[in-house]
Amino acid sequence: MKAVEFQGLEVQYGDMPALRDASGSFETAAMTAIVGPNGAGKSTLLKAALGLIPSTGRVAFFGKPLAEMRARVAYVPQRASVDWDFPVRVIDVVVQGLYRELGLLGRLRLSHRRRALDCLERVGMADYASRQIGALSGGQQQRVFLARALAQNADLYLLDEPFAGVDAATESAIIAVLKSLRDQGRSVVAVHHDLATVPAYFDRVLLLNRHVQAEGPVAETFTPEALARLYGGLLPQLS
């Protein structure tokens, strides 16, 4: 079974088609990069699949509609568009990831708090638990949002450019966490910009330019010819 399967996905931004008849899938227990030129609809694909923007087409998560599978899916936006002055502490943000478990009135037990701290530990942010979220650097904030996703204990992690504008320490911390997720049999999908690091970070790659051009293991799919086709001959630098 695929982690995500989408068929005939269409998204329109005003007069501009952002996705046209996009069909493809993401494997389970793998790390897949979504790669493509600017404006190819990479973030749009994630948002449309998650129902965050209006779209037409069919999407299935682990073979079922999203509504039944929400508990198994976690999403980390590119850079959360939140009010960084908001009165929450780092630990409060991570606890939000437990919402599906806690429900409206479920008591927040010590065990929940421990798990939230655990998630912070995994991204190397445990020491910052009682800081106000705005008091952190951009990379640290990104790690906190990843920790919130970890607290969701999902089987599929969708990340929108997790490495955009973060420091080197954050990048290696995030990739270590994602690899450990994959090693536990969970699925990871990330929109990724830096073509040079694709082979080192990911197992599989999905080439997208408004529609899906190819999907497969990095060794087979991430070829200079395929990339030349994807970027219309303007091949970006590959190391």
């Binding site: 998650l50 129902g51 965050l52 999203l66 509504a67 929400r70 899916v73 976690a74 999403y75 936006p77 959360a80 568009s81 939140v82 009010d83 908001f86 929450v88 409060d92 943000v93 939000q96 919402y99 599906r100 806690l102 429900g103 409206l104 009135l105 919130r148």
Partner: peptide
């Protein structure tokens, strides 16, 4: 009191609230 948790999540991060359904 009843809706405290979803209200906080919605107010802090609407995108996350939506992804939670």
């Amino acid at each position: 009191w009843l809706f405290w948790r979803p209200l906080v999540i919605l107010t802090f991060d609407e995108g996350f609230a939506r992804s939670l359904g």
